[in-house]
């Protein structure tokens, strides 16, 4: 995983609540045995006018002009601004893979579904929870004459608006450390092999039926 560095990016506003992972990446693309290449099918049913199938080249498919990500001003957006309970539903990690592959690095919402939230951190994506009031304000600014650009500074736990105003956000210390340093969870856990083995030995004594 690449370390998460401070960056400035364009905000794409997706004004819907309860965006589920079926909408983020529809089921037919889950048949892939790879973890890359999902970006062109991100939000497939909303983004294109025809029906998407795995293995079909997307560059010639008819785009839905009504869908926000298709607007020219949001091309290359790295920050997705959305509403409450983003990522609800299925645990498919294909959802953060698709968002990442598309080019998003940060998602801002008043709330996220638990499994999706967790999956983001495993893929270097930063989900940021902000109050409904602040999210409302960002939506207004994103709808302005020019697309909104924000700077995201994870180290300082701050989002910086174009006028220099900073908005703080919360992130778990451990997750922050892992993101900033691009650490792999499995490597970290395997530093504790002895602890796992001693837990296992004690547990086997206590609850042998779990080890038969």
């Amino acid at each position: 995983m690449n370390p998460f560095k401070r960056f400035t990016g364009t905000v794409a506003p997706l004004d819907r609540s309860n965006v589920d992972t079926d909408a983020i990446i529809p089921k037919q693309f889950l048949k892939s045995i790879k973890r890359t290449g999902f970006g062109p099918n991100l939000f497939d049913e909303w983004r294109y006018l025809d029906r998407g199938e795995p293995g079909v080249e997307c560059s010639n498919r008819p785009l839905n002009p009504e869908f926000v990500l298709n607007a020219p001003r949001y091309q290359g957006a790295q920050i997705l601004l959305t509403r409450d309970n983003f990522g609800c539903g299925s645990s498919r990690e294909h959802a953060p893979w698709a968002l990442d592959d598309y080019g998003f690095r940060v998602i801002i919402a008043p709330g996220f579904a638990d499994i999706f939230f967790n999956n983001c951190f495993k893929n270097g994506l930063l989900p940021i929870v902000l109050s409904t009031e602040i999210v409302d304000r960002l939506f207004q600014q994103a709808a302005g004459e020019r697309a909104l650009e924000l700077t995201v500074d994870l180290q300082a736990q701050s989002i910086i608006l174009p006028n220099g105003e900073g908005i703080g956000f919360e992130v778990g210390e451990f997750r922050k450390h892992c993101l900033l340093n691009g650490l792999d969870d499995i490597e970290l856990t395997l530093q504790h092999v002895d602890a796992i083995k001693s837990y296992e030995a004690a547990r086997q004594q206590q609850a042998p039926w779990l080890f038969s």
Binding site: R35, S91, R92, E93, P96, I115, N118, N119, K122, N123, D185, I186, T189, L190, I196
Partner: peptide, 11 residues
């Protein structure tokens, strides 16, 4: 998610 599937398998 799948990263955690790998994590459980490995650890």
């Amino acid at each position: 998610g799948t990263s955690e599937v790998e994590h459980v398998l490995a650890t």
